[in-house]
Amino acid sequence: MAQISQDNRGLRLVVRYTVLCLIAAIFSFPLIFMVISSLKPSQQLLADAHSFRALLPVGDISLNNYFDAFKRAPVALFVFNSVLVTGVTVIASLAVCSAAAFAFAFVKWKGRDLALTVILATLIVPFETIAIPLLLEASKLPWIGLDGITWGWLNSYRVQIVPFIADGLTIYLFVQYFKDLPGELIEAARVEGASWFAIYRRVVMPLSGPVLATAAILKFLVMYNQYLWPIMVTQEEQYRPVMVGLQYFFQLNRAWGEIMAYLSLITVPVLAFYLYLQKAFIASIASTGVKG
């Protein structure tokens, strides 16, 4: 009897792993196709796309597409710009949105409910639909810099950063998370005479690792993949991000090998970053998601 149930368990394990692997294949094959294709000359890539060879590193394999991609476009510059814009926005967004959420979750003040309702309503506005009014606005905004007051934000990093620092979804995530923190902690700190800011910094933030990670990932993905807005506001190459750079590869006769190489170049770092942080990512999304 024991022997049979042992076998049974073994069989079930095999079935389980088979199912897991099949699903994994479905989720990963397009990305495998991308990376494998980036190693092939365009002609071969297109011919191979018609068979299972598309997923195998066979034939004329080299890194030539990568060298060519660097020759065609300032890839390093685009990646730098994207990382800079994304990084600054994510950090600023975490600070601004968590502070706002703190005020919404723990502090009572005049106008709070109205402000929160309006902010949540903005979740419904797709960015594409306000892009043109925003462009008209951004082209006339003042900025105080080293050379005094200048007008118009085009061709800068700030025009790619500032409009995206505060958004409804990030604030919403923080508010939901904060509401589930034990309120007594805050009360106790107030009784002891701690300032609001001290409570925010010393009590709430240290407990907010998971939600900070979630908000950071979401913002990172949105910012790194920006396309429409940078096209409208960056006329100078020195400010262009990766998704605009992708357009450099869409010439009349498309060099698909180079396109795949560029796609791999801009995607693999994000994947690697993600894999590195995946435990924290999943744990953090897991612990915030529940409070819808």
């Binding site: 502070a99 706002a100 703190f102 005020a103 003040w109 005049k110 106008g111 902010i119 800011f197 925010y200």
Partner: peptide
Amino acid sequence: TGWLMAGPAI
């Protein structure tokens, strides 16, 4: 406090 902390985002 409310307006100070939520003000920038608003």
